[in-house]
């Protein structure tokens, strides 16, 4: 009852308070724009087509499931969460992915990972990452087709999006991401030798760095606007840097440098846009720190010891699995409770 008025005070004076849920989502979407723009600049309009197709799929699928579930459609769509999931999955895919691939990914994300669990606020797993992981496991050829930096409208763009490009031609388009190349350099090759061979097409490394910095800029915007809290990104980046440094110092000739881990692949994108999804993350501040640190650690472990060159999706999903446990064991001690473990173990 009284909270009616609490909200009332808030709405009359929005300047002092946190934006409502829908505008939180819209802020996140807005903050992806520098990253998406920079990626398009280096990798062509295929990036934007990914995002647009995924967003359309996201909204349409959400509306369809809501209709089937007999839930209010317009009000729910208004929270922009399906749109955001589309933007995030679209931005994660290799540029100019065929429309059906994006569609399959979005079905996994919106229908399975989100709506079947009860919709916004109830999904235990990050929907975009469920979609991404499903695609990576099911369609590895398409998912590793990351072209080197290229023109804004490369040859065959439209055919590629339409899914009509012959497979033989697809291969000719493909390049390797820096993480990919480093991963598959071979055990015998020293890091210094590898870089000396100039393994990547010109400008690849710097393109990836610019994209990473653009994601960082978007992330800083979210932090400044208090849309996300600092706990998860800082813990995650901290643990990436710490573990990468340990590996690197133990054998610089074999392991990539911490900066390489930070500035290539999806590390920064993941830290600010993926891991910070509050619904599937740990909820207490202490839990968020452990959650973020766990994701960072898993990223480095999978990248260096595991089978995948980048690992943000799997690291996030694995930590999603740990959230109930983290939530249970990271309850803060309320004021007035004695400083013993009994107060912390619910």
């Amino acid at each position: 009852m009284s909270m009616m008025r609490a909200s009332g005070v808030k709405d009359a004076m929005t300047a002092t308070s946190v934006p409502p849920t829908a505008s939180l989502m819209r802020w996140v979407i807005a903050a992806t724009l520098p990253g998406i723009a920079t990626m398009s600049y280096f990798f062509g309009l295929g990036v934007i087509s990914n995002v647009v197709i995924a967003a359309v799929f996201g909204v349409a699928l959400e509306a369809a499931v809501l209709w089937l579930r007999k839930r209010p459609i317009r009000v729910t769509l208004n929270d922009s969460s399906a749109l955001l999931t589309g933007v995030l999955l679209g931005a994660s895919l290799p540029p100019a992915s065929p429309w059906w691939l994006i569609g399959v990914g979005m079905i996994a994300a919106i229908v399975v990972a989100k709506q079947l669990y009860g919709g916004l606020g109830h999904n235990p797993f990050n929907p975009a990452m469920v979609g991404y992981a499903l695609l990576l496991v099911s369609f590895p050829t398409y998912m590793t087709l990351w072209a080197p930096p290229q023109a804004l409208i490369p040859n065959g763009l439209w055919a590629q999006i339409a899914g009509t490009l012959p497979t033989a031609q697809l291969d000719s388009l493909s390049g390797a991401t820096p993480l990919d190349a480093f991963k598959h350099k071979g055990e015998a090759v020293l890091a210094s030798e590898f870089w000396a061979t100039n393994p990547l097409p010109d400008g690849t490394l710097s393109a990836w760095r610019w994209v990473a910095l653009a994601w960082l800029a978007g992330g800083v915007l979210l932090l400044v606007k208090r849309v996300i809290s600092w706990h998860i990104p800082i813990a995650m980046l901290g643990s990436v840097l710490l573990l990468a440094t340990l590996f690197y110092l133990s054998d610089p000739s074999h392991f990539a440098s911490p900066l390489f881990h930070l500035l290539t692949g999806a590390t920064l994108f993941g830290a600010f846009f993926i891991a910070t999804d509050p619904v599937s993350a740990a909820t207490s501040q202490r839990g968020k720190l452990i959650y973020g640190a766990g994701i960072g650690a898993l990223i480095i472990i999978i990248r260096t010891v595991g089978g995948y060159p980048d690992a943000v999706a799997f690291a996030v999903l694995l930590m999603n699995l740990c959230v109930p446990l983290l939530d249970l064991y990271s309850v803060p001690r309320p004021t007035g409770h004695p400083n013993t473990s009994s107060g912390e173990r619910p």
Binding site: A6, L120, G121
Partner: peptide
């Protein structure tokens, strides 16, 4: 003091936790 807007689902953002003067977990 207008009536409150419609409630939407909790997204576990944790804002409530950061303002709780007793250090509880309101979202939980």
């Amino acid at each position: 003091l207008p009536p409150p807007p419609a409630e939407s689902p909790c997204i576990r953002c944790g804002e409530c936790e950061s303002v709780c003067p007793v250090a509880l977990l309101p979202q939980q």
